[in-house]
Write a protein that binds this DNA or RNA. Sequence first.
DNA 1: CCTACGGCCTCACGTCGCGTGAGGGTCAAG
DNA 2: CTTGACCCTCACGCGACGTGAGGCCGTAGG
Lengths: 248, 248
Amino acid sequence: MKEVARIGGLTVRTLHHYDAIGLLCPRLRSKAGYRLYTEADLLRLQQIVVYRELGVPLDQIRSIMDDPAFEPRAALVEQRERLRERAEQTQGMLRAVDAALRVLDGEEVIDMSELFDGFDPSQYEDEARARWGHTDAYAESARRTKGYSTEDWVRIQRETDELMQRIAALRAAGASPSDPAAMDLAEEHRQQIDRFYYPCRHEIHRGLARMYVEDSRFTANLDRYGEGVAAFLAAAIEANVERGTRPG
Amino acid sequence: MKEVARIGGLTVRTLHHYDAIGLLCPRLRSKAGYRLYTEADLLRLQQIVVYRELGVPLDQIRSIMDDPAFEPRAALVEQRERLRERAEQTQGMLRAVDAALRVLDGEEVIDMSELFDGFDPSQYEDEARARWGHTDAYAESARRTKGYSTEDWVRIQRETDELMQRIAALRAAGASPSDPAAMDLAEEHRQQIDRFYYPCRHEIHRGLARMYVEDSRFTANLDRYGEGVAAFLAAAIEANVERGTRPG
DNA sequence: CCTACGGCCTCACGTCGCGTGAGGGTCAAG
DNA sequence: CTTGACCCTCACGCGACGTGAGGCCGTAGG
């Protein structure tokens, strides 16, 4: 009876549960009330297990499988997409943890390269030094970031990410870069850099904005939040610079 | 107040919950009873979010963070391991879904190569044909497996996997390959092949067993269930062959 | 000054996918 | 005829919140 089911990696209680919610009701019962699972039931169970392992909620599994127009192919394709997303998430978290560990171990000298997370730091570090090594901003950033703890970095990453998401959301909502809301976010962006890395006046900020659209690596990095986000942010920064420098 | 918190991707209720279970209790309350989160609280919250996203249960997060000897490094290393496991799981599921899709699309002719899941089928198919293409077993296997549906394959995969896990468990428990229990599992293995692929007499089974230890690809594949599992299974099969052919 | 409105508070019950007994019937073996 | 091993049906518990209900706080407007 349930030996068969237990072998499938499930408990008796799980089967009872599936019976109770109508996900898998055995066709037959012995006169004593024992559940008797047929081959067909077991096949259905196999499918259920697969979907469950893919993280599909049970009621959705039921509606999927009870749908007369049940298309296993479409379902599988969708599950594959979900899995891809999950894999990417996991990879991202792994990278974050690895980065945190490197910082903790002091193996890696944090500098401007960390300013734009997602880049290959080793590739980028030399270039950053070559382009900005002579500037005060670079020195200040290097000085500050050396003092940051793992927790600081995690927090910075989160705050940066969160702001970018809000920017992307605003753009997705159809806003123009010259809208006050967009300029406000650009201003927040400036202040974030100011707080975390180096004094970032409007002129410096404008320089960054131009780089976001001219250097395709920056563009690609920012466009992870949505296509055109880099350009939107750059335009919003420009607008904010105008606003910030005209009255003063 | 909670604007700050909501921005972090959490709901007010979540913060209440964390307060209720003592995970994050704001230091201050306004005279009206409003929760006032300090910078320190927010830092702690960031950490909590990180751990939560890594799938750590909340009470563990609490004990981790309240532990005076809290070692962020060790914690991170452990989290990395967990993430690795999760990534592997996800990858395995992706492969399974892809395989199912290929079968469904009929793009791939299933044959002996599927007998030992985890191998690169394209690499393996030619070799399998070259080595066993002239045999009756190969023809029979090809004939049978063509008729299998996606559900069949999922079930076969599960049954195979389940048996291997039982074999690995027996070995881990310190059993000898010549123990009756081990021989029984070897016999089950033989019958599984017999049912799913082709008539598998003891001699054929012995041939498979030798291949499991001589072909390092098979060894590696089976040793996914634990180091030495391939050798253990091979020895158990040999013992079972002796048992099965001597009385008859 | 009253009122509306949004935000905050505290209960307190609902959800999901089961785990974990309690209390009792069934079945084959000794 | 008892002993276990298995099965059944309630029914409550858990973890991490969601989702109101009912009420206090604070401020902007009429």
